[in-house]
């Protein structure tokens, strides 16, 4: 504003012309707008309704007016929060020792670096390398590694159970299993260095997988034959969604043991592995459809 205009505004105030305006006339009562209540419309198209039975994806969820129903939105937000929480969770320092694992760590120093530097998560730090050489039996058939991966929640939840089931299944097939180790801030390829260091025929890492909507507790298993640095994803076989609503732990353990013994028999893994020769335990039967976990209850009268 120009200086002269400021001066005149100041003078106007001083002369009392800027006194508060008189109260406006009270408004007459405003009639309430006609209530627009949208009734929820469940999905009517048979295809979508049928598809919704086979997936936890957001299909066949119906609508209210032009929007999602409140319970659908709340459920979505809650599931997203579960996923965020799983990524943010940290594996406690002493978890490995308390559960009877040899504690190892990658070269990552903090959680943020873990998320930003996958390359550091694929190599052991010097102390871990030393601990591995000192504490672990050399030359097992299968070296199993439990790790936090992208979901420490999943690792803490079912990592130990899966490890024990896998170890039992492998031993039942006559395979020797290495010293149990647990790696912190680990990426999948860390199994290469660990397996190479202990001289295992097969390395198998069980780690929390990248959380999806509502599944923060899923584990994945990656299996590689003749582990050494430089193996690629083409050399690995994997099973994902190992959790209560996906593949149960026992079934996963049977399949992982079958994979390991088949790798030793065929002396290869990954794309080159002939899955037709896995045997009964390897055959995939159609899985029952996943069921969505109800995380939130919409208040009465809201949504559906």
């Amino acid at each position: 504003m120009s200086r002269t205009r400021q001066l005149m505004a100041g003078l106007r105030d001083a002369l009392g012309s800027a006194e508060p305006l008189p109260r406006p006339e009270p408004l007459p009562a405003i009639p309430a707008p006609p209530a627009r209540v949208y009734t929820p419309r469940p999905e009517k198209r048979p295809f979508a309704a049928e598809a919704a039975k086979h997936t936890t994806a957001l299909v066949g969820i119906g609508h209210v007016g032009t929007r999602y129903a409140t319970d659908v939105v709340l459920q979505f937000q809650a599931e997203l929060a579960v996923a965020h929480g799983a990524v943010a969770a940290l594996l406690p320092d002493d978890w490995a020792q308390q559960n009877g694992f040899v504690p190892l760590a990658s070269r990552v120093t903090n959680h943020r670096e873990f998320l930003l530097r996958p390359d550091l998560g694929r190599r052991l730090d010097d102390a871990s390398l030393e601990a591995l050489r000192r504490n672990c039996t050399r030359g097992p058939d299968v070296q199993v590694i439990v790790a936090d991966g992208l979901s420490a929640v999943a690792c803490m939840g079912s990592g130990k159970d899966l490890y024990e089931a896998v170890a039992r299944a492998c031993q039942a097939r006559g395979l020797t299993v290495g010293t149990p180790v647990c790696a912190r801030f680990a990426r999948v390829w860390l199994e290469d260095e660990i397996g190479q260091e202990v001289g295992a025929k097969v390395a198998m890492i069980l780690l929390g997988e990248r959380p999806g909507l509502g599944t923060g507790d899923g584990l994945s298993a990656y299996v590689v034959y003749d582990p050494r640095l430089g193996k690629t994803d083409g050399d690995r076989n994997m099973i994902s969604n190992i959790h209560a609503r996906g593949m149960p732990i026992d079934e996963a353990a049977q399949r992982l043991a079958a994979l390991a013994s088949s790798m030793i028999e065929q002396r290869t893994s990954g794309v080159a592995l002939d899955l037709a020769r896995l045997g009964l335990a390897g055959e995939r039967t159609p899985r029952p459809p996943q069921v969505r976990q109800k995380l939130v209850n919409a208040p009465d009268g809201v949504g559906r």
């Binding site: 200086r3 002269t4 001066l7 005149m8 100041g10 003078l11 001083a14 002369l15």
Partner: peptide, 13 residues
């Protein structure tokens, strides 16, 4: 100058 202008405007008002 500013004081003069303000006094002038006040007198005119």
């Amino acid at each position: 100058c500013e004081a003069a202008a303000v006094a002038y405007a006040a007198a005119v008002v």
